[in-house]
């Protein structure tokens, strides 16, 4: 019995700093967003209760395209899972295997993460430039597009969404690579050696020895990648602006409605982002646990 109380005290002591941070900073925005989201409130006018009207509006009106934004971030999250993470994993496995210049490659591939998003945005703006950029000539040289100049960043264009997604996928490959590299390196060399002696090929070692032991790291990467996609904002804002329809993401809708003074709608967008991210995080956690 005595150990039980001392354990309770220990639990409280160890949890305390995190709880203070959590309740001091993170809980208030969640509660306030939830509360304001059911009010019809446009600054500077008074707010009136309106039930779920804000949510309804956000999913139906074309002016504040939350629905479009949700579809867009699902696409982004999907592409992160099938392109960004496998690429990062491939790089991490390649480097983790021990290759000449391992340290150099590791550092260089992490560079885009260190360079501020402002620069990345400016750079991609220039690369997308219809007649002076590199993307159009590059695609032309490999025959993907013809003579025409594609207006990648045209405000409501068909290509705007893709133009925003590509740099977002690219920017964090280095981050996930580093995370996964840590996972690869944490596999005991003896395990590898043993598998090799048993006649496994490099691929088989990766597939059956290394990757299964990286479960925790992969889980973190997937959660980071998916919630990061759902919350994505910076690059979309730089490349397409907060008023964009074609490349809308929930965060641009949130910022757009907030800057317009539609605080009720803005809070509702925040609630949608919170719910989506939470659901995704819980779901991913559960999926990884199931495969134990």
């Amino acid at each position: 019995m005595k150990r039980k109380t001392s354990d309770t005290i220990s639990i409280i002591v160890f949890l305390l700093p995190a709880l203070i941070l959590f309740f001091g900073i993170l809980v208030a925005p969640i509660i306030i967003s939830g509360y304001y989201s059911v009010f019809d409130w446009q600054f500077p006018f008074d707010k009136t209760f309106c039930g779920f009207q804000n949510y309804k509006k956000l999913f139906t009106t074309e002016w504040y395209p939350l629905w479009k934004g949700v579809k867009n971030v699902f696409l982004l999250a999907g592409l992160s899972l099938v392109i960004q993470l496998p690429l990062s994993l491939g790089l991490a496995l390649m480097l983790g295997r021990g290759i000449k210049g391992e340290r150099f490659f590791l550092s260089v591939n992490f560079l885009p993460v260190l360079i501020s998003t402002v620069v990345i945005g400016l750079l991609w703006r220039r690369m997308y430039d219809a007649d002076a950029g590199v993307i159009n000539p590059l695609l032309r040289s490999v025959g993907i597009i013809g003579e025409e100049n594609i207006q990648w960043l045209a405000a409501n264009g068909d290509h705007l969404l893709m133009a925003c997604i590509v740099p977002m996928l690219w920017q964090y490959v280095g981050y996930h690579m580093l995370l996964m590299y840590a996972g690869v390196k944490s596999v005991a060399p003896e395990l590898r050696e043993a598998a090799m002696i048993d006649g496994a090929t490099t691929w088989q070692v990766d597939r059956f020895v290394v990757i299964p032991s990286m479960k925790q790291v992969l889980k973190v990467s997937v959660i980071f990648s998916v919630t990061g996609s759902l919350k994505s904002y910076d690059l979309v804002s730089i490349l397409a602006g907060d008023r964009t329809y074609a490349a809308a993401v929930p965060s641009t809708v949130l910022m757009n409605t907030k800057s317009v003074g539609l605080y009720g709608m803005s809070s509702a967008s925040a609630v949608v982002i919170i719910v989506l991210c939470f659901a995704a995080a819980v779901l991913i956690n559960a999926l990884f646990r199931e495969r134990d």
């Binding site: 219809a130 990648w152 960043l153």
Partner: peptide
């Protein structure tokens, strides 16, 4: 200028 569509 058609490129104005995507310029700042």
């Amino acid at each position: 200028d058609p490129n104005g569509q995507s310029m700042d």
